[in-house]
């Protein structure tokens, strides 16, 4: 069987804020076409990990390689191959939706962006909003625009933090379809979400982190086989056991 080198490789990533250890020696890899579901309780270090991989926070300790480029040695090369969809996208209030796509294409050096933009506006149901300003967009529209901005760069690695926030059921269905399609085209995707159902539906592999450390890494089937769950257990049950939250639940429940 042919194996591809991972498009995203994270080795012993550690991140500290003053005295707080947010990420503690985190390691994982994502292969082309693979979707990694990143889950963990609030404050587990998911967003900090993603922000560091996206080059938003400096790498204090550890190694990150994006499409073969070391983030520390070649940050621009790594960033060019990567797209980041934050949990609460903040568009430029004075640019229109179409101008946002023009802007992203300019910053990422995408040629012939116009046709791509037209297609993306259609796919994300934004055609009617093409001339709307960033300040006029609803939460869901901002999320769709963030998708379109990420998609126009044709990323090799896609990082998404709570990507379905604010979307209506139709938007959620379209977003899931698009995410699957990007993966099918060979991109490596890290998808962080509290929606375990979404992770179950989309993710090929699962990374559960707690207090900045990986407490489980593997496929959903492997998780179900492990002692984290009874055979056929739900992801919710696996998650609660992996993070020790079920013990607290028992105590709380008496």
């Amino acid at each position: 069987m042919e194996t591809h080198p991972p498009l995203l490789s994270v080795r012993a990533l550690t991140r500290r804020f003053d005295t707080v250890l947010a990420v503690d020696g985190l390691s994982f890899e994502v292969a082309p076409g693979e979707i990694l579901g990143l889950v963990g309780p609030n404050g587990a270090g998911k967003t900090t990990s993603l922000r560091t991989i996206a080059g938003i926070l400096p790498v204090q300790s550890g190694e990150i390689t994006v499409a073969g480029r070391d983030l520390k040695q070649d940050p621009l090369g790594a960033k060019s191959a990567l797209a980041w969809v934050p949990d609460d996208p903040q568009p430029d209030e004075s640019l229109t939706v179409l101008e946002h796509l023009e802007f992203t294409a300019g910053v990422y050096g995408v040629r012939d962006w116009s046709e791509l933009a037209t297609g993306l506006l259609e796919r994300f149901d934004l055609t009617e909003k093409a001339d709307a300003l960033g300040s006029e967009l609803s939460r869901g529209m901002r999320q769709k625009l963030a998708f379109a901005q990420a998609w126009i760069t044709a990323p090799q690695v896609l990082l998404m933090d709570e990507p379905l926030s604010g979307l209506d059921p139709l938007g959620i269905r379209a977003a899931k379809r698009e995410i699957r399609e990007v993966a099918a085209n060979g991109a490596a995707i890290v998808l962080s979400s509290h929606l375990l159902k979404l992770i179950e539906e989309l993710a090929d592999r699962l990374l559960i982190i707690d207090s900045g450390r990986a407490v489980f890494s593997g496929t959903l089937a492997e998780a179900r086989e492990s002692d984290l769950a009874e055979r056929g257990g739900s992801l919710e049950e696996i998650f609660l056991r992996a993070t020790g939250a079920d013990d607290q639940d028992d105590v709380a429940g008496g």
Binding site: L76, K79, D92
Partner: peptide
């Protein structure tokens, strides 16, 4: 408010 996006640009 957009510093997160700005810092992710390959510039």
């Amino acid at each position: 408010s957009r510093m997160e996006s700005i810092k992710s640009w390959p510039v």
